[in-house]
Design a protein around this nucleic acid. Sequence first.
DNA 1: GTCTATAACGTGATAGAC
DNA 2: GTCTATCACGTTATAGAC
Lengths: 190, 190
Amino acid sequence: MKHLGDTKTEILDRAAELLQTRGYNGFSYRDISSPMGVKNAAIHYHYPSKGDLAMALVDRYTDILRGATREFMAHGGSAKKQLDNLFRFTLSECQRGRLVCPIGAFSVDFENLPQTVKAAASRFHEATMKWLIQVLEVGREQEELQFEGTPEGRALALLSSLQGARQIGRMMGMEAVSRIIKQERQALGV
Amino acid sequence: MKHLGDTKTEILDRAAELLQTRGYNGFSYRDISSPMGVKNAAIHYHYPSKGDLAMALVDRYTDILRGATREFMAHGGSAKKQLDNLFRFTLSECQRGRLVCPIGAFSVDFENLPQTVKAAASRFHEATMKWLIQVLEVGREQEELQFEGTPEGRALALLSSLQGARQIGRMMGMEAVSRIIKQERQALGV
DNA sequence: GTCTATAACGTGATAGAC
DNA sequence: GTCTATCACGTTATAGAC
């Protein structure tokens, strides 16, 4: 028996999958509804416009990130462990075919996005940076990590590298991704 | 008075601009034809299908790359100078609003691309890698550049970083891009 | 409250006018 | 040889059936 809101969740699950495999402009409501054995318009009931759906997706990613952040802040968890999780998560996502990262998903089509979604996506991106900077800062203080330059600079470099890795992975395959990640691990000592 | 083929060239120019600002799925034939004061179908005369247009774009980028490659091979040009050009070119492209790199442009929509275009895009990507690897090899031999690991690994890392930089630039602005590029320059000694 | 029928529009593409 | 009128289809979105 279905719980209340199960349908809505299933829609979001499928949307996330499609977003990360095909990008925002690469999937339609029909792509979501069809495998559910329902008409595309049914999706509009749960998410009136595609912008609403996009917003829900950003919110979901934000929640996931918030969970990781909170855990790190509260338990004073190891920075090394956090980065290890990031690397492992990125690689496993890629291996599951999710080669478009949540941040990058809206990037190509960024200009065409509704203003509200653009703002939310930017906020999410900033939150990610903030989290990563703090992890790097703490990691260096506790002598778990070594790197040159500021934590801000290092976070920026790491994030761009990971995003680029996924992008390259789409054309060059998974070995390229795992290779780049391996290098980043070595550089940081994770 | 117009030269023969001027129209065809103008179409390709506009298409390249649109491709690098909005991605492959982000522009239509109408976006090209409308500012030219002509109907969308007119474009189909010059490029029958959108796949043909995409192929022409890949060919153009390949030609540009080939020019750079040939110059490097023939004149035995400095590796440092080549990388300097790459960095400067990337930054200037971004400043002109072309935040989607030629390689990455087809990346998000890669799966939906015609087989021929996918193949051409992959070849272009491989050619880029090949060029970059050679530049790094020669540069290290001539002691112009310093880096750890293999030239292949370093090339992969550099490419992913630059692609990621552009992607991040769309959301975080140009300072992020120039900052990442500056760091890559420092790391290599360029 | 959930979904279907249908609209309104944009897309890539063809056939044929000039 | 170059472009326009037009098509078939997919898209997002609305109105209303059950």
